[in-house]
Design a protein around this nucleic acid. Structure first.
Lengths: 129, 129
DNA sequence: ATACTGTTATATAAGTAATATAACAAGTAT
DNA sequence: ATACTTGTTATATTACTTATATAACAGTAT
């Protein structure tokens, strides 16, 4: 697994986990339909509690990014990367607005921000397939 | 004041507050050097506790966005919009990476994302001066 | 003096995060 | 059939965060 947990981070463990799984999917480390480790498996691999993993998985499920089946386990959604939630644009708009506002407060200019976004996209989107 | 607090939001009150102040600065509602309301004043205007406002203000101070003076009150930093913290790019890079990863998982494409960022920037940056 | 600033100190209530155990229900493997 | 694996549910505990409430303090104005 590519996941690394930082016990000293401000970010909660389950949030680190779900964010890194999103990153893994975007980067292509995890393909649509692919299996994810069991809650117990991943928990023991990372040295954390199974409920913490379960919580991360359930957040991702609510976002439609993974599917959980009581006895078949956890898989990356087959529709991930193509199917978008109905109101995700609104959510994303709010999140970008926050980030751009903060950036402006720190003297980041539009061109710089856009170049950063472009670079990050190129670093991720290439690798999928 | 342009600030609106949502008591039912997932986001904490002090986080809503500091984010909306960042937005206000980016949008030009608040100019560099301008006074912000006193902790008691803003707290009573919003119907929340003065310590909650103080916490939001202190986060913004740690980010270098505002200045707090024990008896002169709170002002928007004069260097805001121009002076950037040393390692802010790194922080921003991480935040954008998270957001782009999530976007990709929801089927958002690069062009769409970039257009969203551009529109948001244009909606904010114009109004300052 | 009075009134205003942010700050500090204390206390309390409610919620969240993370852990630990144990048991359950449904499928798979041998 | 038995054993094992899956996520889920339940209970409990510890620690931390959020938000509130009062009160007092230390400057700085008028």
């Amino acid at each position: 697994m590519f996941i690394r947990i930082d016990l000293n981070s401000e970010e909660t463990l389950y949030s680190q986990l779900s964010n890194q799984i999103k990153y893994g999917i975007a980067k292509g480390y995890l393909k649509p339909g692919e299996d994810l480790p069991s809650v117990r498996g991943l928990a023991s691999e990372l040295g954390i509690n199974l409920h913490t993993v379960a919580k991360a998985y359930n957040r991702l499920k609510e976002e439609g990014i993974i599917n959980i089946n009581r006895s078949r386990g956890v898989k990356v959604s087959k529709q991930v990367l193509t199917n978008r939630g109905t109101d995700y644009e609104t959510i994303l708009h709010g999140k970008i607005t926050k980030l751009v506002s903060e950036g402006i407060c720190h003297g980041i200019e539009k061109d710089e921000f856009m170049q950063m976004v472009e670079k990050i996209f190129d670093g991720l989107e290439g690798e999928q397939k």
